[in-house]
């Protein structure tokens, strides 16, 4: 639901990920890191919800 509200407010859905990995699933961990990394690279840097301390 939190992801849904963030998306409702205009934050990309692919900026927030949830997963469930057992401590024995090192390969799944690696796969998920790769997948998330690719998705976020495709989106580029985050501009929303970032606080600009110089303002």
């Amino acid at each position: 639901m939190m992801g849904n509200l963030l998306e409702h407010m205009g934050v990309d859905r692919d900026r927030i990920h949830f997963s469930w990995i057992s401590s024995a699933e090192a390969t799944k961990f690696v796969d998920v890191v790769k997948e998330i990394s690719e998705k976020v690279r495709a989106l580029g840097p985050n501009k929303k919800f970032v606080k600009d301390y110089n303002k």
Binding site: V11, R15, I16, H17, S19, W20, L43
Partner: peptide, 13 residues
């Protein structure tokens, strides 16, 4: 995490 400028958040259990 988002406020401090990260590009994405990943929560994993």
């Amino acid at each position: 995490a988002l406020r401090e400028g990260c590009d994405a958040v990943w929560v994993s259990g």
